[in-house]
Write a protein that binds this DNA or RNA. Sequence first.
DNA 1: TACTATACATAGTATATCTATGTATATGCG
DNA 2: CGCATATACATAGATATACTATGTATAGTA
Lengths: 110, 110
Amino acid sequence: MRINKELTKGSTALLILSVLSKQEMYGYQMIGEINRRSENVFSMKEGTLYPILHAMVAEGLLESYDAQSETGRERKYYRITAAGNLQLNARREEWQVFTGAVNRVISEGM
Amino acid sequence: MRINKELTKGSTALLILSVLSKQEMYGYQMIGEINRRSENVFSMKEGTLYPILHAMVAEGLLESYDAQSETGRERKYYRITAAGNLQLNARREEWQVFTGAVNRVISEGM
DNA sequence: TACTATACATAGTATATCTATGTATATGCG
DNA sequence: CGCATATACATAGATATACTATGTATAGTA
């Protein structure tokens, strides 16, 4: 099923912070990880991800560093900062409040 | 708690169709109903609602008619059409798929 | 009578994500 | 070995949605 892209707005940062919360990753890897966990409901585009990663680094939510993979290829890895973890908790909470509210609106009187 | 407005994008039509599914209402009433059911998590603005209602009528999802309230005041009521009900079902399904996918992404490995 | 809440409406703004495009490297296959 | 494809990062421009701000008018209340 294809999800209306407008619906996904506002949740992207939550997804990124979530996948980085337990493991450092590079950009392309995050896309694959989000695809996998969502069972391909999401297929985030590079044009979406990279600008967000850059903004998150600028905001201090993430730190990036360059490292060589086993193949010898240079990659840009990202790790979550303490501020990023705080933001993740806030966004998780917001997500619960938001989905709870929608669910009440759509299910009352069904 | 104030919800990031971007998060609510894409869900507005679902909310409107939901409150109209069991009862015909006028615009201002829908705002109140959505506030109430969401326990004031949402406070939809008139500048958001009215253009959407007009668009939904143009798309054939809703029908509108003018009627006088007990107070004698003229109001514009909206009722959901058969096409609107189909759309409601589709958006409910989409909502389940979307929230399920986000929940899997954010909860894996927590 | 004046103020507030109700009720509908529209123009302009902000913002997030997508599409499209570009560059470069690693890998697999004929 | 050469070429196509997947990987990997990046940015400019287009699109869509809801918000802010503003306007008009009526009903109820102090």
